[in-house]
Write a protein that binds this DNA or RNA. Structure first.
Lengths: 212, 212
DNA sequence: TAGATTGTTAATCGATTAACAATC
DNA sequence: TAGATTGTTAATCGATTAACAATC
């Protein structure tokens, strides 16, 4: 069965569905309709039905969607039903925060290594991890498969870090450095550009002020 | 002069232009053409010309764009030519990292307050700031104008925090909590949903794997 | 069966890209 | 003037929304 390519816009909404369904499940709800989700999430009901239908007919006419089942399907589609191992490169503010944040482990993303080049932080303990020298990264990756590499270095070191990760077999890069990185085909990059996000907020501050 | 509304997609690209132009300026370049930017940034040249033209004709036929001037215009448009003051609510991993990160201050965004409800962290020094009790937030905001409120609390406290910030006159919310918050019209919200971002990466890991 | 709600098609909207006349 | 490159219009593409027949 050949599935159509999933539109980019739909993929970006999946985590939001997942979040909503998890909440509803926790609240003890059993089923939900597209109009109910529309009301709660502020999305158009047609869009919700269309989105969910990209992956197959999980709904039932006259009933709606079973929350537990739909949530399970979305987990499977996003690949968060399996455990993923992550290494974090750069033990500065952001790197340490991500290493210490329990929210990812709770969803199955486990940080197994934290690396830096700065000898003053190497050896320090951060949460469950001890900061290792980046020079050991290649050997580390040879010993154990790692799915996700998190770049938390300064911009100047980001590309080299990406290269090392890809060289070591990592196929997903989560990039927090304030620059873009180039990777070969088959490697996924997801950027978290905090400065960019802050600038967009800054733009909207003015926009709303002058319109209101 | 009535300006057309700027498309959402263009606004999200502005920080990327800014980043590119800053780099070029640092490298000593003076002018750039849309085709040069296209090559370097991986965007379509038509799109670049169209984007930049949303704000007025900064270019010159046969010459291109003056980097310093264009960068200045984009700064002005995004509102990052002026200083902005931020308060951070939640002194956990993320809140502390943002308070300590120098990259925002360098762009004119200054963290002036860090708040938490946990008495074990209140009073602690984080970078230049001392963690204050959230109970003092209202009084703090009365004493000095703050443009941006950064929510770094757990999901359960996010909405209440947003309400307190808006009540205190903050008109821009940078939300790092893993949930959405509701605010009245005229308040801008920019979300940084780290879990969502990680899930999208996770989806692409599978996608590329099965296609490659 | 009647009511509710999906899945899906058609219509609309917005964003991207190609093409080229205008102009520096 | 000739060459380069913008600004802008027209064509294409993709995403959203409305509408409704299918069906539980």
């Amino acid at each position: 069965m050949e599935r159509d390519r999933i539109p980019e816009a739909v993929i970006r909404r999946l985590p939001k569905y997942y979040r909503y369904l998890s909440e509803q499940l926790r609240a003890g709800e059993e089923r939900v309709s597209s109009s109910g989700m529309s009301r709660d999430m502020g999305l158009n009901a047609s869009q919700i039905r269309r989105d969910l239908n990209c992956f197959g007919g999980f709904g039932q006419q006259g009933y709606g969607y079973n929350i537990e089942k739909l949530r399970g399907e979305i987990m499977r589609i996003m690949g968060i039903d399996a455990r993923q191992r992550m290494v974090i490169i750069g033990a500065g503010n952001i790197g340490q925060a991500l290493a210490g944040y329990g929210g990812f482990a709770r969803e199955g993303f486990l940080a197994v290594g934290l690396f830096d080049t700065d000898s003053t932080v190497i050896g320090q303990r951060v949460s469950e991890l001890v900061v290792r020298p980046v020079a050991e990264l290649a050997a580390f990756l040879r010993r154990q498969p790692v799915q996700v590499g998190v770049i938390c270095t300064p911009a100047a070191a980001a590309q080299e870090t990406a290269d090392r990760l890809v060289q070591g077999g990592v196929r997903g890069i989560w990039n927090f450095a304030p620059c873009d990185v180039q990777v070969k085909a088959g490697v996924a990059v997801e950027n978290v550009h905090l400065n960019d996000s802050l600038f967009v907020l800054s733009y909207r501050l003015r926009e709303d002020g002058s319109e209101g």
